[in-house]
Design a protein around this nucleic acid. Sequence first.
DNA 1: GTCGTGATTGTTAGCGTTAACATCCGCGTC
DNA 2: GACGCGGATGTTAACGCTAACAATCACGAC
Lengths: 350, 350
Amino acid sequence: MLPDGSTRSLGLSDVAARAGVSHQTVSRVVNGHPNVAPGTRERVQRAIAELGYRPNTAARALVTGSTRTIGLVTSHINQYGPAQTLLGLEKAARAAGYSLSVAILDDDSEVAMREAVDLFVGQSVDAVVALSTYGQAVDALRRFEAPVPLIAVQVGRDDARPTVWVDQEVGAALATRHLLDLGHRTVHHVTGPGDSLEARGRRVGWRRELEAAGAPVPEVLCGDWWPSSGFAAGRELAAMARAARGTADEVTAVFVANDQMALGVLNALCEEGLSVPGDISVVGFDDVPECAYYLPPLTTVRQDFAELGRRGVELVLARLRGEELEADPVLPELVVRASTAPARLMPRAV
Amino acid sequence: MLPDGSTRSLGLSDVAARAGVSHQTVSRVVNGHPNVAPGTRERVQRAIAELGYRPNTAARALVTGSTRTIGLVTSHINQYGPAQTLLGLEKAARAAGYSLSVAILDDDSEVAMREAVDLFVGQSVDAVVALSTYGQAVDALRRFEAPVPLIAVQVGRDDARPTVWVDQEVGAALATRHLLDLGHRTVHHVTGPGDSLEARGRRVGWRRELEAAGAPVPEVLCGDWWPSSGFAAGRELAAMARAARGTADEVTAVFVANDQMALGVLNALCEEGLSVPGDISVVGFDDVPECAYYLPPLTTVRQDFAELGRRGVELVLARLRGEELEADPVLPELVVRASTAPARLMPRAV
DNA sequence: GTCGTGATTGTTAGCGTTAACATCCGCGTC
DNA sequence: GACGCGGATGTTAACGCTAACAATCACGAC
């Protein structure tokens, strides 16, 4: 790769020698400064191309104090939402000339979060994006005094810290309203992990919508995002449905806080001999690619995770420019498929 | 954070001044060199703690030429396998004191791969891990002459380049053999994208096993990993099953190259009035968390992606030490659930 | 012609770290 | 008592880059 066969990487001065200018002029060309004569610029560019010169980021970082790197600290990256957000973040970061360094928390504790951010600060990243909506990791963020911009994703509006987020309450309200509009007297709810902010947002939106409609608010069933917990909740639901058959408390609709748990619910209801949506209507959340192929295809609420990533980077860049950008939440939308249907007229007990 | 309130980050010399030694001695303490008197070491460590000193990675990288960073170039990170592997990689890298920088390819072209690797080389990462098993991106790898160790994940054994991988052929053979053992005359196959090495491996393993058993080898059905393509394949399969009913070519078993497509197949078969496993047995690949909750729960082949990530980092570290580690493939295992059953005795046409 | 002005280029001094070499000191050996 | 040796420490010089300042030059105004 190197013309002289040596393995040492070549620097500004090598290019300078070849182009017959000073290293500083080369630096100016590389960084697109004005005040370089067109002829000179062209000569330098040719030398750069011929030598295959690439600026050394470490040296640059040392003197400028900027690594053009964004640190992403996250957890649960194996789940659809975070993974999709990562995709959006990376793409937007790369487009802006930044690269993305990732740290994945072992657990959602405050210390884990603090260590991860510290590590990034030590690497002098230009900014940190935190994508974790669980437990104390979030609290840690709230307190944090980092020497770099630190923006949080998906934790809702926060006065202490810039954030981007999909409005979970609106999404949950959409789902709940859809079911009420279909004539269901009320809507049951399977929620996510207790320490998840997203789960809380969906719970709040669901409850608020029920209360606004004057519908009774049933006990929530607890899950942990995974199908197995949805399956357990589905069984409970089936038992409740059987117990309440013919009464005014009939169970005919459920809003499940994510699609994977909804899959478990679907499966459990089927196993218990209940038909969806014949007996019970089910709505999920996220719109994972598979859910159009569940049995039946799932009505759900779509979140635009990629957009979330894009906006996250946008916010980072604004901060780096010193602007105080106020971001509005991204709005989710309802995707109606086959798992919801109008409530049957309640057959009175004989 | 800084004692003097200034915003400038503090360096070796600040610590040195405080401890009453030279900056070099501090450097020695920081890097754990021997030949530092215990008393001095202790004094320096106290100064470090008091000042909250953190070494500057850029400066260190500049002089050592090592950033203690591994670059991961990947695509399709939103899919289960790659995401899970990323998890394993990051954890292992962090444990070894490396951080992980990720680049996600926009497409699987050779130029995209080349650009990504170039970018990493420009950032002087210590090594690059390539996690893309598609099309020309793989070919690009084969040719590549990178100035840093470049190891490939999941592309099978490669003479030109160190790799770690799960043996796809063994997995496919496992699935196929399972179905043959259940008494099915042959096994149909829904494959993945044409340019995916993993899809190819599974195809090869399936065919080889059929041939070894002297079973007829049906045409493969083509998919693209996503549920929708599985759905289409499922419809075709149902049509074939109807057409062949009562003949010797009856369709009773299918091996689908991943779980998501298997979900589509399940759905299509159900819609066409065929029972799984009553009429047709289905086996998937990957063992995604949801597949235990499909209807019916899916028999599949589990790949240990996290292990893959771990071994990837192991290989990187070995390379950095200058060792030529030869890695064995990770072996997948069969997980039997409810989507497979013994072949019914073929009811002769009346 | 002289001077100022602005565009272009060159020179110098770090950024914070490690590597290489120099220094100093104490101790055992002959 | 001189010598050598090795452990502990300090000094100096890079690493490749950018920022700040200095120098040069051409050109127009007076």
